[in-house]
Amino acid sequence: MMSIVNETREAPTAPSAPSPSPARRLSSVLDRKPKLRLGMLLSLPLLWLGLVYVVAILAVLLTAFWSVDNMTGELHRSFTFDNVHAVLTEQLYRSVTLRTLGIAIAVTAIDVVIALPIAFYMGKIAAPRTRRWLVIAVLTPLWASYLVKAFAWLSLLSGKGLLSQVLGWTPGYGVTAVILTQAYIWLPFVILPIYTGFERVPNSLLEASADLGGKTGRTLRSVVLPMMVPAIVAGSLFSFSLTLGDYITVRLVGGTKQMLGTLIYTDVGAANNLPLAAAVAIIPIVIMGIYLVVAKRTGALDRL
């Protein structure tokens, strides 16, 4: 409707113009050259992402192979393996890497275990109207500020806080607190892909399994679970990667414990040693790289 009205308004100008305006000439050139069109669409965003982002990431990774003068704090732009060597061999980096990995694995395991039943209910049991409401109910805390959620746990876990008053117990601030808080913060990110996965499992398959005598447990194990692997891996990507890079939560509820994020933060800030920070930053990049390669094999990347 709209277009018809507008077309008739446009029509008189086109044939009556004896020499086409520059804009119209450009338009007709673009009509004939799809590659030029594509180039114009891509040039601005690629220029931005290339200049702001790619250059920045490459530069910081390159910095890992430079050094800092201890006296003046200036960067020496000559190639050295010292930082990478230090990160690979020193006890501090090894134990912090292992702790960070352990926390990320624990957070992911907790989130997947909690996400499976709720995602199953949302995707396979709830009526369509309820389903829509449940998705919104899960999405709302996902978008509530990350910092506020960590802050909520700071007061939840405090000595006189809700947890110790209701349960009579609180883990205090430390590794357990970090795991609980992170599992809470990333849970909606894990629920959503798993819910989408359950939604994609056709009901006819479940009925077929029942008709062939499969009990509920057997059907879940032999039919549903194998189909759910990509979705579960997709969900775990979020909790795993987001935990690996975290440094806010650990500073709020982690007590004196360090994670890779806090090491990077202090190396950049207090120590003013960007090369060392960059070398530490390579650890989560490599771990995520390995995780992504494994995840790609399960087909999880198409589910993001």
Binding site: A56, L244, G245, G261, L274, A281
Partner: peptide, 14 residues
């Protein structure tokens, strides 16, 4: 997709 802290130090340095 990359941890925020890596984007953070990269942009800070740039």
């Amino acid at each position: 997709a990359l941890p925020g802290i890596i984007t953070g130090i990269a942009l800070n340095n740039a």
